[in-house]
């Protein structure tokens, strides 16, 4: 099945549910820090933070959201063309003893998350690290799992999952494409 798998309303509902799950799992959001993985994990992290702030008024969405660029921690740096390095920003309070929720758009092989865990280690020592992804498309290559998933989409390896977001692409959609 190819084509649009999730529309704007589906994405919105999924993120609202994930926000609730994050608050439920952590008995509130007091120590939660959301770290979005650029490019598209970052706007998703901001949206989740805004939703958590609606549920838990004491949660400061701006203060508790950061960006985690993982380029320099990738294990395939020497197998691909040189990548530009993105911005990493850590909330002023730091991440020591916080519950860091990594946020990415598509959860696939697990290698991005492996790199993110290494990057986190250089930034501090959180109490726990959790993972939220809008789409889980399977095909894990490492023993890593997600804590919060918007939608599980069975795919074949050759297919592509494109997440399009209002902030970057002008529309909200998850599209499954046939591979070349």
């Amino acid at each position: 099945m190819t084509g649009t798998i999730m529309g704007a309303a589906d994405i919105s509902r999924a993120l609202t549910r994930i926000a609730h799950e994050i608050v439920e799992r952590n008995d509130g959001a007091a120590d939660v820090v959301l770290m979005g993985i650029p490019t598209r994990g970052l706007p998703i992290a901001h949206r989740l933070a805004a939703r958590i702030a609606e549920i838990e008024p004491a949660f400061d969405a701006e203060l508790a959201t950061g960006a985690l660029d993982i380029t320099m921690y990738r294990d395939d740096l020497f197998k691909n063309p040189t990548r530009a390095i993105g911005t990493t920003s850590v909330p002023d309070t730091g991440i020591d003893d916080a519950v860091v929720v990594l946020v990415d758009d598509v959860f696939h092989t697990g290698r991005t998350i492996r790199a993110a865990l290494d990057a986190i280690r250089d930034l501090g020592r959180p109490r726990a690290v959790q993972l939220a992804a809008l789409v889980d498309r399977g095909h894990r290559e490492l023993p890593i799992r997600a804590d919060f998933v918007g939608k599980n989409i069975p795919t074949s390896r050759s297919e592509r999952v494109d997440v399009r977001l209002e902030e970057i692409d002008g529309e909200d959609a998850v599209i499954l494409r046939k591979g070349e």
Binding site: D69, M72, T87, T88, D118, D122, L123
Partner: peptide, 16 residues
């Protein structure tokens, strides 16, 4: 600029 930002961290070494 991004490299300079990493040099303000506690752990300044990257595995790159």
């Amino acid at each position: 600029t991004q490299m300079a930002a990493t040099q303000e961290r506690e752990v300044r070494k990257l595995p790159t």
